[in-house]
Amino acid sequence: MRWFESNWLRHSTHKKSSRRRNYYEQRRTYCKDGRENGLLKGHARNVLTAFEDTVLKEVKAGGSVDLMKLASFSSKVRPARTGRNPITGEPVEIPEKRVPAIKAHKPLKEACNL
């Protein structure tokens, strides 16, 4: 990030768009991860992007991705059910759909509960 971008982001009084904010937060994460692991910023971005693509592809295909000591990513089918319209109280049929599921493994849970 160049000096004028960081000053503009820090000192601007108008509402920043979430798209721009997410972009800069992502860049900051790549820089921090790269410095900690001795990677260049571009290499860190490529590794994280490849990881995201792999997880999305596997979960979309119905499989699961298991990261040792961290978490497992999968998708589950939520069955069809009958719900109620909160305004009128009429029954409404809710169709079945697939939803993402993330399960934290024991080391991650223990790290959070120090």
Rank of each mutant, 00 (worst) to 15 (best):
Q26N: 14
T29V: 13
L48R: 10
P95E: 11
T82G: 10
R20K: 04
T29K: 14
S72A: 04
K97C: 04
R10E: 08
D66C: 03
K109T: 00
R35T: 11
T54N: 02
V47Y: 01
S12F: 02
H11T: 12
K69H: 12
D33N: 03
R28D: 09
R35S: 13
V92E: 08
R84A: 00
E58F: 12
K15E: 09
R10M: 11
T88Q: 03
R2E: 05
R27L: 15
K109P: 00
V65D: 06
V47W: 00
G38R: 09
K103A: 03
V47H: 01
V99E: 05
L9W: 04
E25V: 15
L70C: 12
K109M: 12
R21A: 06
L48M: 03
D66F: 14
S18L: 12
T29D: 15
L70M: 14
D33A: 09
K69N: 06
R19A: 02
S18W: 13
K103E: 02
E93I: 00
T29M: 03
G83S: 05
R10S: 15
I87D: 08
S6T: 13
L40K: 02
C31E: 08
N22A: 04
V92R: 05
W8V: 10
N7Q: 07
W3T: 11
T88C: 04
S17C: 06
E90F: 01
T82P: 06
E96H: 14
I94Q: 08
E90Y: 00
E58N: 02
A50M: 01
R28N: 13
Y30P: 14
D66T: 11
K41S: 06
E93R: 02
E90N: 09
L114K: 09
D33P: 09
R2G: 04
H14I: 08
V65S: 08
K57C: 07
H14F: 12
T49F: 08
R78I: 03
R98F: 14
T49G: 15
I87K: 14
E96A: 03
N22Y: 15
R35D: 02
A80M: 01
K41T: 05
H43A: 10
E5A: 02
A44F: 07
K76D: 14
S18D: 04
A44P: 00
R84I: 12
N46Y: 03
E58M: 04
F4C: 10
K103L: 14
H43Y: 12
S18K: 13
R21S: 11
G89H: 00
T29N: 07
R45I: 07
A61Q: 05
R10W: 01
T13Y: 14
V77D: 06
P91K: 04
T49M: 10
G63C: 13
F51T: 12
P95G: 10
G83K: 01
R35W: 14
R27K: 02
N37A: 05
R21V: 11
P95H: 02
M68A: 14
T54G: 11
K60G: 11
